[in-house]
Each structure stands twice: as structure tokens, then as C-alpha cells.
């Protein structure tokens, strides 16, 4: 028994080492990673990508975040923190948006969480559009909150617009219009109210759900 346990433990350890080594080796072969000049940064990036791989976290947004840090001459420890923080947000976004979400949606969800969009908003947005990408909607929501519309009001407006069938193009236009108004001196929430209501007024009302009861005669 002891032998078997020891043997099993050795096999498991070997497998783990092979897995980590395999991941690290793969990362080492990645030209974008090997092109990182600073050795400490390269090590940090490979380590974080390995951890992400083991957890099934998509690699591109993490690598992109790391390379952004390299472009901005961030220290290796800063890059490690940024990548670790993004991993957490991507994991949360995955839990909220669902297993079939695209990489773009997860990235957009992570961005939304980073500015303070509540978890329940991401869930509600996914429920509102279960079968298509909501990366644009998440992006617009992130921008609105980043421009100091309260997360609650921004969330409500985006959800209302989604419920009424607003297109990605309409939402992008809404964002542009709000930014233009804010630049002209309007408060962000007043601008959102103005333009959001405007779009809502042009969209069809949702069909009331039939409750199964016949109309009274």
C-alpha cells in the first residue's frame, strides 16, 4: 500500500512537473514571450501564463496585458500584479457570463468589473442575450461608468436598451453622444438620460407576456 501510495505520489508529481514544464516550454517557444528582453519580466510572464493555463483562463488577454506593461516599461513585479489581478477578473467574468462566452466577452467583462460594474449586471446582461456576443454592450457600459455615470444607472440604462433590442451600433452611438455632451459640459448622468431615453423612444415596446388567462368578457 505504502509502495502504491509512494508510486502514485511520484507519478502525480511527475505529471505535474511535466505539465508545468510543458507549459513553460511552450511559453518559452512563444515568440512574443521570448522577445521580452528583461529576464525577470520574461520569467514572471511565463509563470503567470502557466498558472492561467492550468486554470483554463484564456491566454490572450493576459499576454496582451503583460506586453502592455512591457511597452510601458513597467517593472516585473507590477506586471505580475497586473496579470494576477486580471486573472481574477477573468475568472469572475467567466462565472458570471457563462462557459460559452468568447474571449472578447470575458475580456470585456473583466474590464467592466474593474470599473465597478456589479456582478449581477453581468449576469443580467448574459440573460438578456444568451446566444450572441455582448462584448460591445459590456464595452459601452464600461465606458459610461469610466466617465462617471454611476454603475447602477449605467447598468439600468444598458439593460433597458438591451431589453428593447437596441443594436450594438445604437449603443456605440449612445456612448459617443454621451461623451460629446459631457465634453460640452453636461453631467454624465444627464447626458445618458437624455440620449438613452431618446433611443428607447424609438425602439418597440416589449411584448407583454401572455399569462394564460383568457380576457374577461
Amino acid at each position: 500500500m505504502k509502495f502504491l501510495n509512494a508510486r502514485s505520489a511520484a507519478v502525480a508529481t511527475a505529471a505535474m512537473l511535466v505539465s508545468i514544464y510543458g507549459a513553460t516550454a511552450a511559453a518559452q517557444q512563444d515568440p512574443q514571450v521570448t522577445a521580452i528582453r528583461d529576464e525577470a519580466t520574461r520569467t514572471v510572464v511565463m509563470e503567470q501564463l502557466s498558472i492561467a493555463r492550468d486554470r483554463g483562463i484564456p491566454r490572450e488577454p493576459l499576454l496582451s496585458r503583460a506586453l502592455e506593461g512591457v511597452a510601458k516599461n513597467a517593472s516585473s513585479s507590477t506586471i505580475r500584479s497586473a496579470m494576477a489581478a486580471l486573472q481574477k477578473r477573468l475568472t469572475r467574468a467567466h462565472d458570471l457570463l457563462g462557459a460559452s462566452s468568447t474571449v472578447d466577452e470575458l475580456s470585456a467583462g473583466a474590464d467592466a468589473l474593474s470599473v465597478g460594474v456589479p456582478d449581477k449586471t453581468l449576469k443580467a446582461m448574459r440573460e438578456a442575450a444568451p446566444r450572441r456576443s455582448i462584448a460591445v454592450e459590456l464595452g459601452v457600459l464600461t465606458e459610461l461608468v469610466a466617465r462617471h455615470v454611476s454603475p447602477k444607472k449605467a447598468s439600468q440604462m444598458i439593460l433597458d436598451l438591451m431589453a428593447r433590442g437596441a443594436t450594438g451600433a445604437q449603443l456605440t452611438a449612445l456612448n459617443a453622444a454621451v461623451q460629446s455632451d459631457v465634453a460640452a459640459g453636461l453631467t454624465p448622468e444627464a447626458a445618458l438620460e437624455r440620449h438613452g431615453r431618446g433611443i428607447l423612444s424609438l425602439l418597440p415596446l416589449p411584448t407583454p407576456a401572455f399569462n394564460g388567462n383568457p380576457r374577461p368578457r
Binding site: A173, R194, G198, I199, S201, L202
Partner: peptide, 8 residues
């Protein structure tokens, strides 16, 4: 188009 963008 103008209704969508210039509401108000």
C-alpha cells in the same frame, strides 16, 4: 439618424 443622436 438625427432622431437617434440628437434627441432633445
Amino acid at each position: 439618424h438625427r432622431s437617434l443622436i440628437e434627441y432633445g
